[in-house]
Simulated assay, not measured.
Amino acid sequence: MSTTRGRTSRPTGRPPLTDERKAEIRLEIARAAVDLFVTQGVTATTGEQIGAAVGVSARTVWRYFPSKESCVRPLFSAGIDMIADCLRRWRPGQPVAELFDQELADEDHLLAGPDRATVGALVRLTRTEPGLRAIWLQTYDEAEPAFARALAERAGLSADDLRPTIQAAIFNAALRAAVEHYAWHTAGIDADRDTAQTELAATLRSALTVVGEGVV
């Protein structure tokens, strides 16, 4: 801390944001973007509108995300770490669906943010919005190596071994297919929050049961 003519100078400006607060802001922006995309469409939504819904400037939105479509990414990727942790804990002979039962029941894990009925609407938009589809698929591409590392650790294999790599691809494809199946088959159904949560969890559990029958 320097002094000038006997006076002590103090740092000016706002204190830097913590990593935790930055993550919170990213999630707030993601939730606002989803609500706007679902209610008025992606094309009609602007960065200014997303920022206003959160109480920040459009400049802040672009500081966190390169495009308006990428704003939803935190919601798509929310469950990757949880799933990887579950796979590391997966005991030999344990039904894989049983492993995920507690997490599937927790709405803050696999798909965090808006209620799951809204998430279904968002995933349906990936069919008609190329920008959202790219983010959706990119999220799963990035999840696969994390799942492969977890499965390799579980089996005591090298991270680049082919077996956990293939198993990770199977898990990844099953999870994506399950969420998309849920989204497509709930279109036009006015389900309440609890019903949507139960239906998505049941769909994911069914998909994991199928996977578990082929991965031992």
Rank of each mutant, 00 (worst) to 15 (best):
A152W: 02
A146P: 07
E107C: 11
F100R: 02
G188H: 05
L75H: 08
G47R: 02
T4K: 00
L111N: 11
A112R: 14
R10D: 07
G212S: 01
A177E: 13
V72E: 06
A183H: 08
S206I: 09
A183L: 02
Q138C: 10
I170S: 10
S77V: 07
A84K: 02
T39F: 05
L151G: 08
L208E: 04
G47I: 03
T18F: 01
A105F: 05
R91Y: 03
V123Y: 06
H181Y: 09
F37D: 05
S67Y: 00
R89M: 10
A121T: 08
P74C: 05
P95T: 04
D194T: 14
G131S: 04
S206W: 13
E180C: 09
A168Y: 01
V210H: 11
R124C: 12
F100D: 00
A146Y: 10
E28R: 12
A117H: 13
V179W: 03
A191I: 06
H109P: 08
P66S: 01
V42D: 04
D190T: 15
T209C: 06
G214S: 13
T198D: 11
A202G: 07
W62H: 15
D35Q: 12
E142V: 11
V215R: 06
V34L: 14
G47V: 03
D19I: 08
G13K: 00
A121G: 08
